[in-house]
């Protein structure tokens, strides 16, 4: 089995969000970038577990400029065999999906893994777009994956529960919590990652679908109104009369 895992660069979850250039650009200054958690903890680790059980290979792919090298090495340190970097600043989800779909067309893979969303733009887009571009099956928000020959069985999250689905390879999935447990790279993995191959591939042309014109921060809360623990009735009255939510 040949597994391809899409990884994205994302600001660490504790990042203080700020903007520059008249609120048109995200302020990268002092921001620590990580592998998007859904891509790393769930998609990559499950691909590695299946490779360890069934054989094959795990390739990670990233669409980004040279500054994503650190997160690619992290994915290699966790255990991916090799990596591909499509050398371009990602413009939007469709741009990223087109790059990855083109690469997949030229290099046979059995399963393309994505995380369920990135923690910066929260779109849940790239996996579905790759599937649409390739005309492959797509299973979104998958919380488990088992393989039996060429047939995969997955659980996917739905409103109020989950459903079990079957799909033949090749297909695309987006991985949610439950699919695997995060792995911490060990020293041997970190050393090995330094010499694992990273192919740099030129980007293909893409139309301009969407762009971000500006950013703003949400309105700050006006401050908490504290109610005494001895007078819980006041909270009930505030929720009914002022907030009008009960």
């Amino acid at each position: 089995m040949k597994f391809l895992v899409c990884i994205s660069k994302a600001p660490d979850t504790t990042t203080k969000i700020a903007f520059t250039d008249n609120n048109t650009k995200f302020n990268n200054d002092k921001v620590v970038f990580i592998v998007n958690p859904y891509d790393e903890w769930y998609a990559l680790v499950r691909a590695l577990e299946l490779k360890e059980k069934l054989g094959g290979s795990v390739t990670v792919i990233n669409v980004g400029a040279a500054d994503t090298d650190a997160i690619i090495r992290k994915a290699l340190a966790i255990g991916a065999d090799d990596a591909v970097r499509i050398d371009a600043e990602p413009i939007d989800a469709m741009f990223v999906a087109k790059q990855i779909a083109e690469y997949v067309k030229a290099n046979a893979y059995d399963i393309v893994f994505c995380g369920k969303e990135t923690i910066d733009y929260n779109g849940s887009e790239v996996g579905g777009m790759i599937a649409g571009l390739l005309d492959w099956g797509y299973v979104s928000l998958a919380s488990s994956l088992e393989l039996n020959g060429s047939i995969a069985t997955l659980n996917r999250e739905i409103a109020g529960g989950h459903e079990t689905v079957e799909v033949n390879i090749p297909f695309v999935l987006s991985a949610a919590k439950g699919m695997a447990e995060a792995r911490i790279p060990n020293m041997r993995g970190i050393m090995a990652a330094r010499t694992k191959p990273v192919a740099i591939v030129a980007a293909v042309a893409s139309e301009n679908y969407t762009s971000i014109l500006s950013y703003e921060l949400p309105k700050e809360k006006t401050g908490v109104k504290l109610v005494s623990a001895d007078n819980v009735g006041e909270l009930v009255s505030l929720l009914h009369n002022d907030a009008k939510v009960i």
Binding site: G128, S140, T210
Partner: peptide, 23 residues
């Protein structure tokens, strides 16, 4: 932008060659 929308909309964006704003 619920479970079904998150699943279908990006596939449709690729098929329709559409710009997509998710959420």
């Amino acid at each position: 932008f619920n479970y079904s929308g998150k699943a279908i909309a990006p596939v449709l964006a690729a098929k329709m060659n559409a710009g997509y704003v998710a959420g």
